[in-house]
């Protein structure tokens, strides 16, 4: 049924209306490249809905459905159940949702799908706020970051999605970043080979929302990895595996100075953030050592 007016790049249209400097395109292209054409997508409203298309115009070459903001995991679970009933054990069902659609409003349906271990791959690209609708804070917005609903900086820490996922004993979960594409691809490949509910948490900085020059997206994401703001890890068969130890764990000075959302942060807040990052990392190290 799909007719082509343009040649796709992989499974994705070459011209997508995502903002300049947004790397969600790269996530989509890499994920679909690995998952293959026998894949069905579930996308909620949000930045990723640029890939659902508009009117009759499509942006991806695989079938899919745009659900509501909070039910991507449930719709995916339904699709997986439908395929399973029909003896289709090959088609991959992939949700790609933002942090708001995942850790805020979508946490219930994701929790249900994880608990039932529905055969889906759930990908959360995390830009740490509701970027599509004007940079409103989400429960993934980090401590001290300013958004349009946390203008004085967010007073509390973000939810720890990976730990929430791990508490559901899913067969595979991993965090990844657009700053490390080989690692991201490796984790998507691994997820593809595993049955059950798999979750990938991928950092995807937002130049508009975070307030940095659009050319710096990868650089900012790399800095987040280096100071432990974004921890690359895997959870497989109940075991935690951490990536390379952050070289400047807890040193947020440079990271904060790169972004306008941390403009008004006081020294005290910086120390609190720093302490939190170190404590979290040390806790994860203990888990990894188990």
């Amino acid at each position: 049924m799909l007719t082509y007016k343009t040649q796709p790049k992989g499974a994705v249209s070459p011209g997508i209306n995502t903002c300049q400097g947004c790397m969600i395109d790269v996530i989509f292209r890499n994920v679909l490249d690995i998952m293959g054409e026998d894949t069905v997508l579930v996308i909620p409203p949000g930045c990723s809905a640029q890939f659902s298309g508009c009117g009759p115009e499509a942006s991806v070459t695989v079938p899919g459905i745009q659900g509501n903001l909070e039910n991507s995991a449930a719709i995916a679970a339904g699709i997986a159940a439908g395929f399973k009933y029909q003896g289709n054990d090959h088609t991959q069902v992939v949700s790609i949702a933002g942090d708001g659609a995942t850790v805020d409003i979508g946490i219930q349906s994701l929790s249900g799908a994880m608990e039932r271990n529905d055969n889906i791959l759930y990908i959360c690209y995390d830009n740490e706020a509701y970027m599509n609708t004007g940079i409103q804070g989400s429960s993934s917005t980090p401590l001290a970051a300013s958004t349009t609903t946390t203008p004085a900086g967010k007073p509390v820490n973000s939810k720890d999605l990976m730990q929430i996922v791990m508490a559901h004993h899913v067969p595979y979960a991993a965090s990844a970043s657009i700053a490390n594409l080989p690692d991201l691809r490796k984790k998507v490949k691994k997820a593809k080979e595993i049955k059950g509910c798999r979750v990938l948490h991928i950092m995807s900085p937002c130049p508009t929302g975070w307030g940095y020059k659009m050319s710096k997206t990868v650089e900012v994401a790399r800095e987040a990895i280096q100071n432990g703001s974004w921890v690359l890890m895997e959870y497989e068969d109940g075991r935690v595996k951490l990536g390379k130890k952050p070289s400047q764990l807890g040193d947020v000075e440079k990271y904060f100075s790169m972004q306008k959302r941390f403009k008004g942060v006081t020294q005290e807040e910086k120390e609190e953030v720093s302490r939190h990052l170190i404590e979290r990392y040390e806790y994860l190290e203990k888990l990894a050592a188990l």
Binding site: A77, G78, Y85, Q108
Partner: peptide
């Protein structure tokens, strides 16, 4: 396939997803 859902919202979401696959 009996999907033991965690809410009615998901029950309908799953129903939609599943029926769109042709069941």
């Amino acid at each position: 396939e009996y999907v033991r859902v965690e809410s009615e919202h998901s029950a309908m979401s799953i129903s939609i997803g599943a029926q769109l696959t042709g069941v």
